[in-house]
Nucleic acid binder design. Structure first.
Lengths: 202, 202
DNA sequence: TTTATTTGCTAACGAGCGTTAGCTTTTATA
DNA sequence: TATAAAAGCTAACGCTCGTTAGCAAATAAA
């Protein structure tokens, strides 16, 4: 659950409101005066708490990156079949995404406005994260669990379908994060077709 | 194939270069001076050809929207099973996406910078397009072809995995659009797992 | 109560933004 | 060759941007 206004430091409030604005309007289209207005203060006052506009973006992006990496590491080294490990990784990813869909949206769509050297550091983290997924799929291909050949393609498709979640997920919706994770991993692992009735063709 | 520089009107050149910049930097972070520099002219000169910055964005967005709708309509009324129709719709969608991945990226990520009443018109088109996909999935659920229950969820996941394509697809890559369409629809319809049933047709 | 810290204000800065007006040059047409 | 149209230039406009300096309240600690 989200923290209430009174127990959050002003800096945390700024980050939270900025996250919401960056997500809905985009980083470049959000002005410091927009942000100040939303907080009921003047634009100049923001700088008693933050270093710069990009400073906020950096915090939001890396906070999410850390959350994804931490969630994945709890899955990575479990001694279970690749298909099960993939299911756990999907569930972990969905949980992070749904925990804070606004920050997830910023993480996914606004990272390109980071400047060097922060941008390179971010891209590297992201690449390593995706490589973790590719390893699992490669393992599943090698031992015959998966019937595909191109792990890069699979992981891109997999993460793509997950990463759109933040655009429509609403915490007050009828599905909770665990249900979404179950439904999604089932859909991705088993497909859409009712295989008993369907005659497969080439 | 893309038109060469000499056979394109200046306006078309502007649209094309702007598309590339909007895609890589975002609409709000792209300046008219950036755009002019890329074309080797001065910023003011752009206005001999275009009405405004948003004017360009409108053209790019609606050109893509029209392309998606047109491609879908050729599929929609065919008398084939839902699973096959979905496969055709996925292929059509992928074909439009890969034909111009830069414009697709703008269409997917920058539409929010359209202003009213254009924005409403755009959202409406997009909603109708997605509704077309939902109809197919509903049909497949009703006649037992698909083993899912929530067509909204399925279509969101489906289109999500397709709509990330533009971020990594490169025309010079080893897979052509038709191969990608085949691979993707197979993955989505049949899933990742190697079940005994699937093994027969591998 | 004194002192230090946090928080916020006003006013302004230099820069960059999208866009326009008026004029010149290039290109195509008659 | 004369002329109309297309294309581009320079210079500037009004505005908004992120950010800073200097100062004033409010709050917490001593």
């Amino acid at each position: 659950m989200l923290n209430t206004t009174n127990t959050m430091s002003r800096k945390e409030q700024i980050d939270q409101v900025a996250t919401s604005l960056f997500r809905s309007r985009g980083f470049a289209a959000t002005t410091m005066r927009d942000l100040a207005l939303e907080l009921g203060i003047e634009a100049g006052s923001l700088y008693s708490h933050i270093k710069s506009k990009e400073d906020i973006l950096q915090r939001v992006c890396f906070r999410m990156a850390d959350a994804f990496v931490a969630a994945f590491e709890q899955v990575q080294n479990q001694a279970v079949p690749a298909s099960e490990k993939l299911q756990l990784a999907v569930a972990a990813h969905v949980r992070v995404l749904t925990q804070n869909p606004e920050a997830a949206g910023v993480f996914l769509n606004e990272w390109k406005h980071l400047s060097e050297p922060t941008l390179s550091k971010f891209s590297q983290m992201r690449h390593r994260y995706e490589e973790g997924f590719r390893e699992i799929v490669r393992e599943g291909i090698a031992n015959g669990e998966f019937r595909v050949t191109d792990e890069k393609f699979v992981v891109l498709t997999l993460l793509s379908s997950l990463n759109w979640l933040h655009t429509w997920y609403k915490p007050e919706g009828k599905m909770n994060p665990d249900q979404i994770a179950d439904y999604l991993s089932n859909l991705l692992l088993n497909g859409l077709l009712n295989t008993e009735l369907h005659a497969q063709n080439a």
